[in-house]
Computed example of a mutant assay.
Amino acid sequence: MIKVSVMYPNSASAKFDIDYYCNTHIPMVVELLGDALKVGAVDSGLAGGAPGDTPAFIAMGHMTFNSVEDFQAAFGPNAEVIMADLANFTNVEPTIQISEIRI
């Protein structure tokens, strides 16, 4: 199994509409990716590691797939639509990581 994490770095100029992300963007992504997507989750940053620190990321979306190939086959044909929607909820360029789930 693999996890695709889409992480939105925090900064003083960052804007992020978490309600739009959760209620509009994510449901659209779930529909577009279909059965290839096994599990999805959204995290909203609260704080950094030390008292008073801001979170490193405003939000993170996590998606689980059986394989990198399954992710690519589902995401590729829908990438343009998904990426075009980012402007509706953020001015942040996301960082994307694909990880193997080990435990």
Rank of each mutant, 00 (worst) to 15 (best):
Lys3Trp: 07
Val4Leu: 14
Ser5Ala: 07
Ser5Leu: 11
Ser5Gln: 05
Met7Tyr: 06
Met7Asp: 11
Met7Phe: 08
Tyr8Arg: 06
Asn10Glu: 10
Ala12Val: 13
Ala12Phe: 14
Ala14Gln: 02
Phe16Tyr: 15
Asp17Met: 11
Ile18Asn: 13
Ile18Thr: 15
Cys22Tyr: 05
Asn23Lys: 07
Asn23Ile: 07
His25Ile: 14
Pro27Ser: 00
Met28Asn: 11
Val29Phe: 11
Leu32Asp: 11
Leu33Met: 11
Ala36Arg: 09
Val39Thr: 10
Val42Gly: 02
Asp43Phe: 12
Leu46Ser: 06
Leu46Arg: 13
Leu46Val: 15
Gly48Asp: 04
Gly48Tyr: 09
Gly48Leu: 04
Ala50Thr: 06
Pro51Tyr: 02
Gly52Glu: 07
Gly52Lys: 14
Thr54Asp: 12
Thr54Asn: 15
Phe57Arg: 06
Ile58Asp: 07
Ala59Leu: 07
Gly61His: 00
His62Tyr: 01
His62Ile: 03
Ser67His: 03
Val68Trp: 10
Ala73Asn: 14
Ala73Cys: 07
Ala74Met: 12
Pro77Tyr: 02
Pro77Gln: 00
Met83Val: 11
Leu86Phe: 14
Asn91Gln: 03
Pro94Thr: 08
Ile96Ser: 06
Ile96Arg: 13
Ile96Pro: 05
Gln97Cys: 10
Ile98Tyr: 10
Ser99Arg: 03
Glu100His: 04
Glu100Arg: 12
Ile101Glu: 04
Ile101Ala: 01
